[in-house]
Amino acid sequence: MISTRVLIAAGIALALVVGIGAVFFASSDPDGLDSTALVTQGQKELTQPANPGAAVDGAALPGTFEYSAPFAEYTLGGSKLADAGLMAAGTLLALIAVLGIGRGLKAFNRSRSS
């Protein structure tokens, strides 16, 4: 049985490998939601790949809101290496967010009970 410290370190390393690997090896095919949208918009047959150049029409609904994320599509728009760094940063940010909020809530609980 490995120690908690080793388990955590191995988990972080594995997450970083997967996250960085996604930049180089992830499929560019549309996901299930986008594929369904393409089917309902007549740009894809259910069991076939999407038509060449097909893109989900995201402006179909009135009264919706649009937000431009700073790193949309998980890319900086430059080299794959830069995108790998971005994915690594995102992976670590998810870790830090949960660690910070989790620790903060436990500390809050301790201060209330003491």
Partner: peptide, 8 residues
């Protein structure tokens, strides 16, 4: 760590 893994 699970959150980092899910993100990746």
């Amino acid at each position: 760590v699970l959150a980092a893994g899910v993100f990746a």
